[in-house]
């Protein structure tokens, strides 16, 4: 079993990164650390995709010397997916950071538990 992990070390690393990020996003109370966790989690998935799309010894699928045999090139789709994923991840990070700034301005702390206590006591109930 461990041999398989060693052969597919990139995938194994990707899943470990995903796990680290997921746990950080779930359990850390600090908003910025949560965001860092989210980015690590996404990076894990992108590493998985990128390593899966790459085949050693092959070239990117751009025809320059007239070779059209698909066996000479790598699959371009995973790279496209990674690119799309990065765009999504950047926009999500941006909106989360702006929300964090808004919460920090109001409650002067980044700890979610403290923010929750403060917001319940401020009683903005309708």
């Amino acid at each position: 079993m461990f041999e398989n992990l060693l052969i597919n070390y990139e995938e194994a690393a990707a899943i470990i990164l995903f796990g680290i990020g997921f746990t950080m996003l779930l359990f850390h109370q600090n908003l910025i650390k949560k965001l860092i966790g989210m980015n690590i989690m996404d990076t894990g998935v992108f590493l998985f995709l990128a390593s899966m799309g790459y085949i050693e010894g092959r070239k990117p699928p751009i025809i320059v010397d007239g070779v059209t045999d698909p066996a000479r090139y790598i699959n371009p789709v995973p790279a496209g997916l990674v690119l799309t994923g990065i765009v999504v991840s950047v926009s999500v990070t941006a909106i989360m950071l702006s929300l964090t700034i808004r919460l920090y301005k109001r409650y002067h702390t980044l700890n979610l538990d403290e923010i929750y206590t403060l917001s319940v006591h401020s009683m903005e109930d309708r």
């Binding site: 995903f18 990020g21 997921f22 996003l25 779930l26 908003l31 949560k34 989210m38 989690m41 996404d42 998935v45 994923g85 999500v92 909106i95 989360m96 929300l99 964090t100 808004r102 919460l103 109001r106 409650y107 979610l112 923010i115 929750y116 403060l118 917001s119 401020s122 903005e124």
Partner: peptide
């Protein structure tokens, strides 16, 4: 304040979900 907090929690849970879905 409470909608911002609710939105942050909503986003965090949703991001966990999106990560797993991806």
């Amino acid at each position: 304040g409470r909608t911002t907090l609710a939105a942050v929690r909503y986003m965090i849970l949703n991001l966990l979900g999106s990560g797993l879905f991806l």
